[in-house]
Amino acid sequence: MTELLNTLYVQTPGASLHLDGDTVRIALPEPDSPRRTLPLLRLESIVVLGNVNVSGPLLARCAQDGRAVVWMSRGGRFLCRLAGPLRGNVLLRHAQHLAHADPATRLPIARACVAGKIQNSRQLVLRSARDATTAKDSLRAIAADLEASLAAAGTAADIEVLMGVEGAAARAYFEALALMIRKDTGLSFPGRIKRPPTDPVNALLSFLYGLVRSSVHGACEQVGLDPYVGFLHGIRPGKPALALDLMEEFRPAVADRLALTLINRRQVGPGDFETMEGGAVQLTEEGRKTVLTAWQHNRQKERPHAVLGRRVALGLLPSVQARLMARTLRQELPGYLPWTA
């Protein structure tokens, strides 16, 4: 059994983290702030957002233990990750590179990644259609379109065609996402806008996607995969293609579903966002605290996993799927099977 450890998130501007024996000591900028320490043994990773300092001794200890330290912008954009020496068998990474270079191997894996995303998107739309008091017919029509996209993804002749199917499905899905937000929340979704997000809902989605990406990137490295060599997303310098591939199936079922819950239950509202110079919108410090608390709670929830035949905590799913990808590349499995809600 794998234990789901905690992630320490620090976002207070001017805070600093230090090594204190086998604990991490958190020093806040206010002179009268109480001293806080947490045992390193219980931490899987540390995520710092914005202007937070991490001491050299703490970084060295985390690298030695294999504990990731992740830096993100205050808006949730992934910046970098320190994780110590690269783990895993070089033969696995060699098999991964060969699979990427072989269209007959690469295409089925890419199809599976897209199928997982579309299926989880469709399930979220159907769930919302069942609970909706308005727009039921529109949501069911979009779910039918997604079902057709799912079939098209399974027969796509090459990566370019597959990317076209994925793009069309994403456009239809985001139309549905706008209908899933309750009118009385004070928030609306104008369609996906990123780099930078210019409205609260897109700011929330971007923040959650950054958290998902960090988790998946770490899972790839933990297993010994190369996060930068993927199958759906093309290879580009600085682009973690495999992490982006594997996070596709988690966007709707993990990030989008949590965003809808926070908005529709009014746990997050217009007052939890701020507009920066240039028009970019991001969560306030209090808004980020609310989202991170919900994110940590959500990681504990268990969902059925068809391949394993048991329930798995959402926080462990990236590691499970990275291991299934590794087994696929080692030819221990006939093909990659995405997790579907």
Rank of each mutant, 00 (worst) to 15 (best):
G315D: 08
R323E: 15
G164A: 09
L308A: 09
V52R: 01
T23S: 15
K289D: 10
V52D: 01
L314N: 10
A157P: 00
R323W: 05
P39G: 08
P252Y: 11
Y209L: 07
L333G: 00
L91C: 06
A15V: 09
G287R: 00
R303A: 12
A129G: 04
V114R: 03
H18D: 15
T105C: 09
I118Y: 03
G186K: 11
E166A: 04
W339E: 09
A153P: 02
R311V: 01
L262S: 12
E285G: 12
G238A: 05
H97F: 12
H97W: 14
G167C: 04
Y209D: 07
L208V: 07
A99K: 03
D32E: 10
P338N: 01
S45F: 04
S73D: 06
A168K: 13
L317M: 15
T7A: 06
A68F: 09
V229Y: 03
L91R: 15
R182P: 00
P252L: 12
A99Q: 05
S206I: 02
V69Q: 00
A83T: 05
G234R: 12
R266E: 14
T261A: 14
Y9L: 06
F273V: 02
P29G: 03
R265K: 14
I118R: 01
G88E: 04
A104N: 12
A101I: 09
K301V: 14
R213K: 06
G186W: 09
L19G: 02
L162P: 00
P338T: 01
Y336M: 03
G186A: 11
V90K: 12
N298G: 08
I46H: 05
Q331D: 12
L242H: 06
R311C: 05
S215P: 00
R36L: 15
A203I: 08
S138R: 15
G271K: 07
A178K: 08
T7S: 07
V291S: 02
T293G: 08
A110G: 05
A104C: 07
G224N: 10
T12V: 15
A341H: 05
S55D: 12
N89H: 13
Q119Y: 09
V268G: 00
